[in-house]
Amino acid sequence: MNIEDDFTLIRQCLDGNTNSFEIIVKKYQLKIINLSYKYTKNYADAEEVAQQSFLRAFNSLDKFRFESQFSTWMHRITVNCALNYINSKEKMKEKETISIDSGHSSKQEDFGNMEIQIPAGVNAETPYNHYNMEELAGHTEKVYNSLPEELKLVIKLREIENMSYDEISLKTGMPIGTVRSRLHRAREILIDSLKDYLPDE
């Protein structure tokens, strides 16, 4: 997937096809949750920030100028959302401290959404309705390592080093058609291996 694909999806969204936005969400969800986590240091909050970021992006899609990459624009929105979220959370904490100091303890329900914090320990159990990404990554790595060398090379150049088909063709000396077919084959093997772990919702 390249920039043009994102632009096409955004144009489709702007034309009223909201389902195209689901593809955008699926493409960027991991990046955005990971970025949010870097700010919030808490997965429950990171999820909340990521949701807010996607909603804000959807509601202001008409302001996207098609001059920069969508990922850059989305990154900026997420950082803003994360900072706002942290500020509002700090304010809530301050209010809580003040109310406790003045003898009025605040109700526990007011902070109910912050109760679902996932333990940060390595051996923490996977929360209900969540994927354990380390487990999936480990599985993917095994499958990747078991790929034939020519497929592994193509997928490495394309997915890790973000090279275009032309660049891969130049680097490996393979015709573009061969690059495409090998990449397709490698992706197919990897996707099929994960399908059992990621059932349909």
Binding site: K27, L30, I33, N34, N132, A137, E159, L190, L194, L198
Partner: peptide, 17 residues
């Protein structure tokens, strides 16, 4: 799934999703 794989290969993914 493809984007999951990309994140795994780049080692840039959250612990829970």
């Amino acid at each position: 799934i493809l984007y999951f794989i990309k994140s795994f290969l780049k080692k840039d993914f959250p612990r829970f999703m």
